[in-house]
């Protein structure tokens, strides 16, 4: 049961939330005064605003909301889909379309479950593929700015020298110079790999220019480690590895397949180069096993990579 009067307060809070989306600074000042008027007002607004954000999270579960694309008379460009259609089956690519002229001020918060990939297209033609178990926040009002909270995202960015696309990872800034690049945020570390074009990492501090094929990694507070090898980039349903140790390949596979993939210690350091098209776990791992010259066996809830010629079967 809600206390008496709460209903009215909540309706007013909803009214504010509606008005503030396209609100001016004066609206926000008036809103501040309303919050100060009664202690319950802030709580009511919190409830409304959090529920409002939930709608973004919930939108791909919702047939009604998926119908948002139906108005489109033209079939959408599908350049991001790989030649083989197989990946769509498993990777569950969801589309969120930022309509040209979109004026919603709220941030778009894209959260993926393990094994899920989502593609977000922006009004300017840029596209972002968000890898499994990741969170990316796009500020629709700012247009060309994103914050990677965790996990991995691949940015295919339409270059605009006047308004460069900026990706924030904690306090680090990655600024595109025209580009396809991957940003991975793990526990206390950051990796940036450039597939095409170039980006600048922290232009105001280290100012590292990364060209195609370059990547850097850095643990919090540590030095910037630079290498020329794009390892494990999620790209349009493909995983590209170049000289990556199997232990990190297994981590990337786990994230993208949504099933735990572990590796025997004796081969964990072995390196792998190649491209894997992400599909359902079993066939994907079978293909990978052939490429990598290892065996992939079911193991509990997941899979285990082992040297060939060992194990039960």
């Amino acid at each position: 049961m809600r206390p008496e009067g709460e209903h009215e307060v909540e309706a007013t809070a909803i009214g504010w939330r509606l008005r503030l989306r396209d609100g001016s600074a004066a609206d926000w000042e008036a809103f501040t005064a309303w919050l100060e008027a009664a202690p319950g007002n802030a709580t009511a607004y919190d409830r409304v605003a959090l529920a409002d954000q939930d709608v973004e999270f919930a939108d791909d579960r919702q047939p009604m909301l998926a119908a948002a694309n139906d108005d489109d008379p033209q079939p959408r460009r599908r350049w991001w889909l790989p030649a083989g259609a197989g990946i769509a089956a498993a990777a569950a690519i969801a589309l969120i379309v930022a309509v040209p002229g979109f004026r919603a001020a709220t941030a778009l918060d894209v959260v993926t479950a393990p094994g899920e990939q989502r593609l977000v297209t922006l009004a300017d033609g840029s596209a972002v593929t968000v890898g499994g178990n990741s969170q990316l926040i796009l500020d629709r009002s700012a247009g060309r700015r994103a914050e990677l909270r965790r996990g991995e995202a691949v940015f295919k960015v339409r270059h605009d020298a006047a308004v460069p696309f900026v990706v924030m990872v904690g306090d680090d800034r990655i600024v595109d110079v025209g580009t396809v690049f991957t940003v991975t945020r793990g526990e206390g570390n950051l990796r940036v790999a450039v597939a095409e074009g170039s980006v600048r990492y922290n232009p105001d501090a280290e100012n590292v220019l990364l060209l195609a094929g370059d990547s850097i990694s850095r643990t919090a507070g540590g030095p910037v480690v630079r290498s020329h090898a794009a390892a494990g980039a999620t790209r349009q349903g493909r995983l590209d590895f170049s000289d990556a140790p199997l232990r990190s390949v297994a981590v990337t596979l786990s994230r993208n397949l949504g099933t735990p993939v572990s590796v025997d210690p004796d081969i964990a350091g072995r390196s792998f180069s190649g491209t894997i098209i992400v599909g359902p776990p079993a066939p994907t791992l079978a293909r990978f096993a052939v490429l990598a010259g290892v065996a992939a066996r079911p193991d509990g809830d997941g899979w285990r990579l082992q040297a060939r010629g060992r194990g039960a079967n």
């Binding site: 600074a25 926000w28 700012a142």
Partner: peptide
């Protein structure tokens, strides 16, 4: 810090948001 707010119609409202 260091971000340009160009292209944002109402930077003051943006900061509030």
């Amino acid at each position: 810090d260091g971000m340009r707010l160009e292209g944002i119609a109402d930077p003051r409202a943006y900061l509030y948001r």
